[in-house]
């Protein structure tokens, strides 16, 4: 019962489902149009690149992702909508990028992709794209609860020289203008995104690190437990919103 209360508290602390608005609603009409047109959305270049990698036989096993998972359009549908999940091997949560690298190392016997490498972003984009339009549905797995709770603590922890937490901007001031930028609600539904400022695709972790550096804090390392827990909390907070990968952001 106590456990249940924790989860209920976690979920009710975010905005009510119907109130949630994706980041796409906070961007200019031009950027929205770019995201909506698959032939103009630069993020689709990564999706296309990911499809090519999916079918490439590599590593000591000379197996492609497709050798085991066949057609991603079927087998990967809905996967990104429920990640991060609890990993039986590591006995802690793993995100989609982590899972891709796990398959790379354990099943293909190839070297892990670096964070933010074109290959990892492309495969992530290709897999997440198969869930486009599907609602975020975090697994009901009690092994995840303490990690979600930690993610929430991090979200509400003041950090950096500016000494401010994520919620001060993304919960309390969404829709207001910080410098020239509209503050969105920080829903992680479009990742990897194509960000105009980066002139490239990038991961949710890169985006969060940007906010951390913005408040003059030492960002958490790529792949660190803190990052995964933040991802977990944000996905739980975004439950019900549709996946948009590849989203376009300013």
């Amino acid at each position: 019962m106590k456990r249940l209360c924790v989860v209920l508290a976690l979920l009710s602390s975010g905005a009510v489902a119907s109130d949630k608005r994706s980041g796409v609603e906070y961007v200019s009409p031009e950027t929205r149009a770019l995201q909506a047109d698959d032939f103009a959305n630069p993020g689709m270049l990564w999706v296309g690149g990911g499809e090519a990698l999916w079918n490439e036989a590599v590593g000591q096993t000379k197996k492609s992702c497709a050798s085991c998972h066949q057609d991603a359009k079927q087998t990967m549908k809905g996967v990104a909508a429920r990640y991060p999940v609890f990993d039986e091997v590591r006995k802690r949560p793993i995100d989609l990028q982590g899972r891709i690298n796990q398959c790379r190392v354990r099943r293909q016997k190839a070297a892990a992709f670096a964070f933010e490498s074109e290959a990892l972003l492309s495969l992530s984009a290709y897999i997440a794209h198969q869930s486009r339009g599907m609602p975020v549905t975090p697994p009901r797995d009690e092994r995840l609860w303490s990690y979600i709770e930690n993610g929430k603590e991090l979200y509400f922890r003041r950090i950096g020289q500016i000494d401010i937490n994520c919620a001060s901007c993304h919960d309390a001031r969404a829709g207001q203008r910080l410098s020239g930028n509209l503050i969105p609600e920080a829903h992680p539904t479009g990742y990897p995104i194509y960000r105009l400022e980066w002139q490239s695709a990038g991961s949710l972790q890169r985006r969060m690190r940007g906010c951390m550096t913005g408040v003059r804090a030492e960002p958490y390392a790529y792949g660190s437990p803190e990052m995964i827990n933040l991802e977990l909390y944000l996905m739980n907070r975004a439950a019900g919103l549709p996946i948009e990968t590849p989203a376009v952001r300013p």
Binding site: Q161, I162, D163, T213, R216
Partner: peptide, 18 residues
Amino acid sequence: PMPSFYRNDGLTRVGAPW
């Protein structure tokens, strides 16, 4: 949300340059 402009204690994870 306005930062304390003349303070350097009680802060968490301040980035190296600051």
